[in-house]
Structure formats: structure tokens, C-alpha cells
Design a binder for these strands. Structure first.
Lengths: 116, 116
DNA sequence: ACCACCTGCTAACTTTCTTTTGCATGTGGA
DNA sequence: TCCACATGCAAAAGAAAGTTAGCAGGTGGT
């Protein structure tokens, strides 16, 4: 299953390339929790945490789910997805050809000699 | 030796989280080359390529060196550094405590209640 | 009812990337 | 000398990311 497409890989890299998000991952490894609590632990605003969590979620690194706390309140729990990404020139090189980013959209995949 | 500090890891993630840079890595794996040529191959401007190369270099993923081409011209060759980064909740969690980013600079480890 | 928490969302700002343009310099070959 | 290529750097415009602040609604407990 660890055969990320270029875009998928890019999303994961983008999601992990931020100190807050790395901390979030670390925190969630220690224990799954709900947003407000996590925000308090990391000492960042809920709004900010939410944005970061979404990015992690979009990359498939964490998952969210609603749960009812002991006091009957609805809490949104987040937990880690047991991912494992190996970054080496090879793995990257293998993913690159599957990049669909608005970058490869040249309409021209190969060809075109630079000569005049 | 693969024991990146949080900052180091962050730099590598930041460096790889971009389609152009992933392509650059892939291209350099295929063959080491000099800037102008690489720019032609990737079909991006030299100026842009330079910026990306610097970022990769700053993260220690590629290295540069001057060399004299057959025609006696000075060329700046770039080549890959055989890196290998494993991303899992654990490896990340292990790196997080060593993050020195202007983020951890709270000067205040605990304290400050959220009260109004 | 009021307080204490939880959730979600948006508008506005600030900061950091990304990319383009253009200039300056150096070398070998015709 | 002029052309073709290489290198380097910086200013400026555009785009994306990161943050803050504030509003709205929901539930349980006192």
C-alpha cells in the first residue's frame, strides 16, 4: 500500500513540512484527543489548530471522528493513521512521473529539442 | 547518521514539498548536470531553478561543485546526496523535541491560563 | 438563566514562497 | 569583435500559507 502517487507524496510532504504539524503528529502519537484539548496542550489557538489538522487529514495522516464525552458532550477526536513514508532519491524518482500537479500540465510531456 | 534533528528534518521536508524540487531530485538521480542544462531539461528558467537548487542544497539533499567542461567553460554541477528519511509517527515524534524553530521560543514553557 | 466548554466558519492580515525580468560578467570560437 | 553559453544576483509582482479575531450554535451543570 505504500505506493504513493506523486501528488499523494507531495501532499504528505506539504503536510509534514511545518513545525506545528509535526508537533501535532507527535502529540497524537502520545494520545488521541479532541481539538480543544489538543489546542491547549500545544498552546495554539483552536482556529489555527483546525487549519493544521485539516491539512494533515487531507494528506491522510490523521483521521477525525465524533465521540461523546463522559459528560455527554460531542467531541471531535483526532487520531493518527499509521503511515510510513520512505524518502530517498529512488522513491522520489519513482513518484515523480505520476505528478499531475498543474505543473506537468504543459500539454507537452516530452519532445521539444531546445535547439532553434 | 540518519538522526535528523527536528530542524533538519523540517528543512528536508520543506525542501521536498514542491513539485519542481521533486523533479529536480529525480533528474539528478538520472544524471548529474549543470544548471543551464538542467533548466532546459525541466523547462524552467535558470533563475527559478537556482532558487530551488539552493533550497535543496540548504537541506543537504544535493551538493554543488564547479567543473570545467570540455570546452573549457566553468560549469556548476549539482549532484544528489544519498539521503534516506523515514517518516513515521515515531520518527517524527522523536525529532519534535529537538525543534528549535522560532516556534518553541515561548520563553514561557508553561503558565498563562486562558482565562479572560 | 447563566456559566463553562465544545464545535465550526469567515473575513482580514501578515508572512513566506514562487516565478519573472533584467542586468552584469566571463570564456571559447568564428 | 561579435555570438553563443554559462554563472550570479536582486528587485518586484503574484500566489499560497499561516494566524488572529470574532461571531454563532449546541449541551450539561449549578
Amino acid at each position: 500500500m505504500t505506493e504513493p502517487t506523486g501528488d499523494q507524496l507531495l501532499r504528505q510532504l506539504g503536510a509534514l513540512g511545518n513545525p506545528h504539524r509535526l508537533r501535532i503528529v507527535a502529540a497524537l502519537l502520545a494520545e488521541r484527543t479532541y481539538v480543544s484539548k489538543l489546542a491547549r496542550e500545544l498552546r495554539i489557538s483552536r482556529a489555527l489548530l483546525q487549519v493544521h489538522l485539516r491539512k494533515l487529514e487531507a494528506a491522510g495522516l490523521v483521521t477525525a471522528s465524533f465521540e461523546i464525552g463522559e459528560d455527554g458532550k460531542t467531541l471531535r477526536f483526532y487520531e493518527l493513521t499509521p503511515f510510513s513514508v520512505v524518502l530517498t532519491p529512488k522513491t522520489i524518482s519513482a513518484a515523480v512521473p505520476t505528478l499531475t500537479t498543474p505543473d506537468s500540465v504543459h500539454g507537452n510531456a516530452d519532445g521539444e529539442e531546445g535547439r532553434t
